[in-house]
Design a protein around this nucleic acid. Structure first.
Lengths: 341, 341
DNA sequence: ATCGGATCAGACAACGTTGTCATGTAGAAG
DNA sequence: CTTCTACATGACAACGTTGTCTGATCCGAT
């Protein structure tokens, strides 16, 4: 293994100068800088991450923390974050905290205290539902770790938040249904205690109100963002004698469930009922009919979060500006919505 | 931050003794061992990963390398591997190598040489298509990194391989179709140059031969394991005047595509044609009809690979036994297959 | 009593980098 | 011509752990 010392000898300078060149520090003359770079390239020198982080107390690692790993939403965020991390010379660590009851903050404390001490990540990316628990973000902040939250409304000081305007998106989507003549629109909620659930519902209600469509309590059923709960919700809504003409499922997986529920009842979308999802995840174009939905730039969530995070501790001296990045959403009209006859 | 020195002082021993206790090395008396453990617990001591790996030349990291991050197959493997790594005190790093032409070995060399030098992972997990390129596995082996390959037939010396018997699984699935009276069975292949593609095809052919069903060349169409290619393949097979009565798609995503292709042609499964997939991935139960398929224990692939990997460098002295782990598959009969009228 | 081996514990150096401080140089200001 | 400042470089220690080596103790066998 070639070390800084080897490079230093080859370039005829001290190790410290090599270090300065490698880390782009000032106070090295251009000619010398070039000589060192050349020597490093010649020898195929690569800095040792462990030595570097041992000495500098920085890990060059970003930790992504999620509840579950097998949802396309989390997956896409991971893909985006990884892309950025790789490009910037950071490493993305992925951790999953499985379900467990009790205080989430305690859980985090217990689970991450050890890891934080071992290998303090420079930053963490939090996705829902953790992003929605202020105390979790606050805890990491206290530990001196930069925090980026994804998809949440809740904004905390000194914490970056990346999301779309879920309210507006849900409102747009509902408007589309109303414009097609629907006035009986069922709604399947997401997991409770997540801001997305509430925002999407607010958007739905707002569109109703705005267009003078009466809101009916019994058209709203609970859900948990997963396929099975979509089937349940779909059965509840579609089995009625006077069933809604359209269903707004709070995400695509649940919307796929509603389609299946329809089939079980002998109903085919969009002939017998219209259905919309949310997220534009992979399944949205794999169902029949393909889902009309609203696209979140999920991959971009990941890249933006990672980029801002890295920027924030790269410029360590500057104050951590708690920014909120609201990215654009986009309505994706496919085949699951039809005009009311 | 509390260090070994703090623990040593508190327990009244030398740092080296603390090190021995922490790493479960022999030659420490039980009483002393307990005293040290107590002191460590009292102080909330956690070893520093960077110092440890700087000195011991081990990273306590396992690297998962995949082609693409957004497939449920890779995802499940990641989830399994992570689970094990977390439990064993290792960290799972995830890297994605996007498409690019040229020699894959060159690509790996270029992309990982730097990372290998910086933070030599103790082991790597390779998934298809990389698992199928012997030279890639060999390269890592040469670098002194333990290698585990997933889902590939190709076995290399001193490399662990975790998979199911794809041939037998495909054979079973085809048998099921034949038993339902199908004799015109279309087949959609996977990506070429992956052993899974060939093995599944071999299984299909073998079942045909065994039951005396004539094999027809024109019933086999190409595919790439993704949804869109399933739609294409489905269109090719089902649009014919004399269409097959069943289709074997080499994975579930493509099978979902065939269902959609059917709809486009006005055909409904399983009434107008039967369809089977492969993998039992998440989408298999989200389609209508739900897919009959064969389940690969993908999550277990991850856990087994990680476990064996860790075991292998934990017992560094022992010879690296190049094992092949063949896990059990299971036929999952859902609703996409019907008897031939 | 003496020896030999197994067991136990500690002193010390080393891993490869970066932070601190000291030193040297050149140009500007007095 | 001196003094000051800004820029350039290097010597050295330190980060927290583990590998190596040496020494001490204990037991049973000579």
């Amino acid at each position: 293994m070639t070390t800084m010392l080897d490079v230093a000898r080859r370039a005829g300078v001290s190790v410290k100068t090599v270090s300065r060149v490698i880390n782009n520090e000032p106070y090295v003359q251009d000619a010398l800088r070039e000589r060192v770079k050349l020597a490093a390239r010649d020898l195929g020198y690569v800095p040792s991450a462990s030595a570097r982080s041992l000495r500098s107390h920085r890990s060059y690692q970003v930790q992504l923390i999620s509840h579950i790993m097998t949802t396309p939403y989390v997956h896409a965020i991971q893909a985006g974050a990884m892309q950025t991390c790789q490009a910037e010379g950071y490493q993305l660590l992925v951790a999953v905290l499985p379900d467990c009851d009790g205080d989430p903050v305690d859980m985090f404390h217990q689970r991450f205290e050890r890891q934080m001490a071992m290998k303090k990540p420079d930053g963490v990316i939090l996705v829902p539902p953790f992003a929605d628990i202020d105390a979790v973000g606050a805890w990491f902040s206290e530990q001196g770790v930069a925090v980026a939250k994804i998809g949440t409304q809740s904004t905390l000081n000194s914490v970056l938040s990346v999301r779309i305007d879920e309210f507006a998106a849900a409102r747009d989507l509902t408007m589309l249904l109303i414009e097609q003549g629907h006035r009986q629109i069922g709604f399947i909620r997401g997991r409770e205690n997540e801001s997305a659930t509430e925002e999407r519902f607010r958007g739905y209600r707002s569109a109703l109100d705005e267009r003078g469509v009466p809101f009916k309590d019994d058209l709203v059923v609970p859900g948990t963002f997963d396929f099975a709960s979509g089937v349940d919700g779909g059965m509840q809504l579609l089995a009625r004698s006077k069933r809604p003409t359209a269903v707004f499922a709070s995400n695509d997986d649940m919307a796929a469930g509603v389609i299946v529920a329809g089939h079980r009842l002998g109903l085919v979308a969009p002939r017998d009922f219209s259905i919309v999802g949310f997220d534009d995840s992979a399944i949205a174009e794999k169902t029949w009919p393909a889902l009309t939905t609203v696209r979140q730039p999920v991959l971009e969530f990941g890249t933006v979060a990672a980029t801002e995070l890295i920027r924030s501790f790269e410029a360590a001296g500057r104050a951590t500006d708690s920014a909120v990045r609201v990215l654009d959403h986009r309505l994706v009209a496919r085949d699951s919505v039809a005009k009311v006859p």
